[in-house]
């Protein structure tokens, strides 16, 4: 026996720690950019959850048309952000509108990722005809501009929350599949994957337990970016009149409804615009900060 045993224990080594797999999550605070992004998103999440309690008026109730910001309502309460052309309180509509976007955007993104990651894992790990077929389908879907795809689907099947989720899933999952596939191709030749196969792990376990966690960093960054993009998409559809049917508030729709009046009453479009931009900015900042934390890892 060599004397190796004792000396290794005596070596200077970093202290053991737990939960390092997603170590960068703990370090979000280290990145100013990511922290600001996260705070913006949390702000909107709180607004969406507490909408019934914090919104001063019912969102669809016509009270006093064309009121400017700060004007008092008949009951004495203040229209902090004014009212729209139908007399509905803009602040309340923005607050309730955050619910629409914060339900459908994460839902659609989650669906896209489930499908995109599954397809990407299969294509990258199994290769062969599965890869070929999935890649060709991806090419095909990506040949349609995203908005054209949405327009076709929604004009064909009608505007509803579910259809928006379906359309976004169809349009986004190919890109996620490509990203995942690339990551898997880089990881599948690692020795620890071979080691798992050599001890007889089934393919699904190799893909999900051995490979996927190692690809999580870039995927999570992409998810943040994509959330912002889906927020834009939902807003765009509302803006084009293809969003959720009225009268329920939806930020894009609010801009479209009132842009005719922007010349005289800029507040009607300005505040919904700021709402969308701030939420998208939140996701973009978070993604940017995470990207640095993940690459540092």
């Amino acid at each position: 026996m060599s004397a190796a045993g004792a000396e290794i224990a005596a070596e200077v080594l970093p202290p053991p720690s737990r939960g390092l797999r997603f170590g960068w999550i703990r370090r979000i605070g280290h990145s100013k950019v990511a922290t600001i992004g996260l705070l913006i998103i949390l702000f909107w999440a709180v607004v969406a959850v507490t909408a019934p309690w914090i919104s001063p008026f019912p969102p669809n109730l016509p009270i006093r048309p064309m009121a400017s910001a700060g004007v008092r309502a008949p009951n004495g309460a203040v229209f902090w952000l004014g009212t729209d052309h139908l007399g509905r309180d803009i602040l309340s509509r923005i607050i309730w509108g955050s619910r629409t976007v914060l339900v459908y955007a994460p839902l659609a993104t989650a669906c896209s990722f489930v499908i995109g990651i599954t397809a990407g894992l299969l294509a990258g790990f199994k290769r062969g005809w599965i890869d070929e077929a999935l890649s060709r389908i991806t090419d095909l879907v990506l040949a349609f501009p995203a908005l054209v795809l949405y327009i076709i689907i929604i004009s064909k099947f009608g505007a509803s929350g579910i259809n928006i989720v379906l359309a976004v899933t169809l349009a986004s999952s190919p890109a996620i599949m490509r990203l995942t596939r690339g990551l898997v191709l880089a990881l599948r030749t690692r020795a620890f994957v071979a080691a798992a196969q050599l001890r007889g792990e089934p393919a699904w376990r190799v893909m999900v337990v051995e490979i996927l966690p190692n690809a999580s960093g870039p995927l999570i960054v992409d998810a943040c970016l994509r959330l912002g993009y889906v927020v834009i998409t939902i807003g765009t559809l509302g803006f084009l009149g293809l969003g959720l049917p009225p009268p329920d508030p939806d930020w894009g729709g609010m801009i479209n409804d009132t842009r005719k009046f922007a010349l005289v009453f800029p507040h009607m479009v300005l505040f919904p615009c700021l709402a969308v931009c701030s939420l998208v900015l939140g996701f973009n900042l978070l993604a940017d900060g995470l990207r640095e934390l993940v690459t540092e890892d």
Binding site: A191, F192, G200
Partner: peptide
């Protein structure tokens, strides 16, 4: 399974042999 147990492998690159997660 028994054959898998009988045949095992040690890999070249120490940075790739273990799953970092």
């Amino acid at each position: 399974a028994l054959l898998l147990r009988d045949l095992q492998m040690v890999f070249q690159n120490p940075d790739e042999t273990l799953n970092p997660c």
